[in-house]
Every structure is written in C-alpha cells, then in structure tokens.
Amino acid sequence: MATTRDENQSLYQAYLEACNAHDVDRMASFYAPTIKVNDVPMDPVSTAAQFPVLFAAFPDWHWEMRNLLIDGDYVAVHFTVTGTHRGAFNAIEATGRRVSSAEITLYHVEGGKFSEVWDFGGMEAVESQIREAEAP
C-alpha cells in the first residue's frame, strides 16, 4: 500500500519530468485551482505561464534534484538549475553563457495537487551570471 510519502514523492517526480520537458500544460495540471506562489494566490494557468519566458531565454533549462525531503503534506526540494542563455532574459540579450544555480523550493500538497509553493534563491544568481558576461 502506498503511503502519503510515496504518493508525494511520485507526485514531485512526475512534476519534475513535466518541468524538464518544458511541458507547460502538464505543469499546470499539478497545481490546485488556486495555488499560492510565495503567498500570492494564482490560478494554474497563470502560474505555468511564467515558465515560457524562462524556456525561451534558456532553451536547455534543466532542474536536477539533489535532495528531496517529505514531511506529511510538505515536500522540500534542493536542486540545481542549469541552462544556456540563448534569448533575452530580464532585458539582457543572449550571452551564450552557461549558468548554474542552487535553489530550494517548498511545496504544500493538498488533494494530490500543489496548493502552495515557496521558492528560495536562484534567479538572482542566474541574472548575476549572465550580467557578468555583459561586463567589458
């Protein structure tokens, strides 16, 4: 018999597969009808709509799970993101620079969907790495 821990681990691994496939529609299917992202209520489509801009700037964007912790209906993930800056990102034209950053995300699962998500770190480091490529 599957435990909540096993179910939440499977849920996250399936979500990670959708993320790494850049399958935005599938990603949205993992979100509750109202999901809070860093305490801001959003609908699944709006939440997933944040990713195409990232994927356009970094077509090879990839999340690699380093650690996964599950406590009841909470899932914490420590991962590394990598990508190559091939398109405009935050008004910075493509640099061709390879970026890498560590991140931690905490998810709250309700009814088999992510109902709350908190992201910690990462994107500032990515932007810093591509800005370094701009410097003379």
Rank of each mutant, 00 (worst) to 15 (best):
M65H: 07
Y31L: 10
N38P: 03
C19G: 00
W63K: 03
S46R: 11
F51N: 06
T47R: 01
V53P: 00
Y31E: 05
E64S: 15
A28Q: 02
E17G: 12
V45H: 13
V75E: 12
E17A: 15
M42G: 02
D43C: 12
V75G: 05
A57T: 00
G72T: 04
D43N: 15
I70E: 01
P33D: 12
P41C: 10
V77M: 02
V53E: 08
G72W: 04
Y31H: 07
Q13D: 13
V24M: 07
N67H: 15
R26T: 11
S46P: 00
D39C: 02
H62Q: 14
V37R: 10
M42L: 13
L68P: 13
E64P: 03
A56I: 02
D39I: 01
N38K: 08
P59A: 09
D25Y: 02
A48T: 03
A57H: 01
D73F: 06
A21L: 14
P52D: 07
T34V: 14
V77I: 12
V45W: 07
P41K: 09
D43M: 05
F30V: 01
L16W: 01
R66D: 12
T47C: 11
Y12W: 11
V75L: 10
L69C: 14
P41T: 12
V75C: 01
R26K: 15
M65Y: 03
D71T: 05
C19P: 05
I35A: 03
Y74P: 00
L69E: 07
L54H: 00
V37P: 04
V24N: 06
R66C: 05
S29F: 07
A76W: 08
A49Q: 09
S46I: 00
A18K: 04
Y12E: 06
N67S: 06
A76C: 14
V24P: 04
N20C: 10
P41L: 08
P33T: 07
F58Y: 11
H78I: 05
E17Q: 15
P59M: 09
D39V: 00
D60M: 10
D23P: 02
D23Q: 07
A57S: 08
K36L: 14
P44M: 13
I35E: 03
V40C: 00
D25A: 15
K36Q: 13
P33K: 14
T34S: 11
H62A: 11
F51M: 11
V77S: 03
Y74V: 04
A18V: 04
C19I: 06
D23N: 14
L16M: 10
L11P: 08
V45R: 14
A28R: 03
V45L: 14
P59C: 10
E64I: 00
P41A: 07
W63F: 15
D25V: 08
M27R: 05
P52Y: 07
D39E: 12
V45K: 15
D25L: 12
F30Y: 13
P41R: 12
N67K: 02
R66V: 10
